[in-house]
Simulated assay, not measured.
Amino acid sequence: MALSKKQGVVVGVTAAAIAAIVAVGAVVALNQPAAATAADSTPKPTKSAAKISADSVPWVEGDVVPKAVEALKKSGFTPVEPGKLTVAVGAFVPPLSYVPDGKTLPAGTEPNIGSLIAQGLGLKYNPVVVAWADWPLGIQSGKYDLITSNVTVTEARKELLDFASYRQDLLGFYVKSDSRITKIEKAADISGLKIVVGSGTNQEQVLLKWNDELKTAGKAPADLQYYDDNAAATLALQSGRVDAVFGPNAAYAWAARETGATKLVGIVPGGWPQAAAIAAGTAKGNGLIEPVNIVLNELIANGKYAQVLKGWGLDSEGVTTSEINPPGLPKS
Rank of each mutant, 00 (worst) to 15 (best):
K6R: 13
A15V: 13
A20K: 15
A23M: 11
A26N: 14
A26M: 12
V28R: 15
A36Y: 08
T37Q: 10
D40R: 06
S41Y: 10
T46S: 13
V60P: 02
V60T: 11
P66E: 05
E70R: 10
E70Q: 11
T86C: 04
A88N: 06
V93Q: 14
V93K: 13
D101W: 03
G102N: 03
G108R: 09
N112H: 05
S115P: 00
A118M: 07
L123F: 06
K124C: 03
N126F: 11
I139V: 15
I139K: 02
V151S: 08
V151C: 06
T152A: 12
L170D: 11
L171S: 08
L171T: 09
F173I: 00
D178P: 00
G192L: 03
V206Y: 02
V206D: 01
T216C: 01
G218Q: 07
N230E: 12
A231T: 15
R241S: 12
R241F: 07
A244W: 01
E258Q: 15
T262M: 14
I267G: 00
I267Y: 14
W272C: 07
G285M: 07
I289K: 00
P291C: 04
N293P: 08
N297S: 10
L299Y: 05
A301T: 13
Y305H: 05
Q307E: 15
L309V: 02
T320E: 13
N325A: 01
S332V: 07
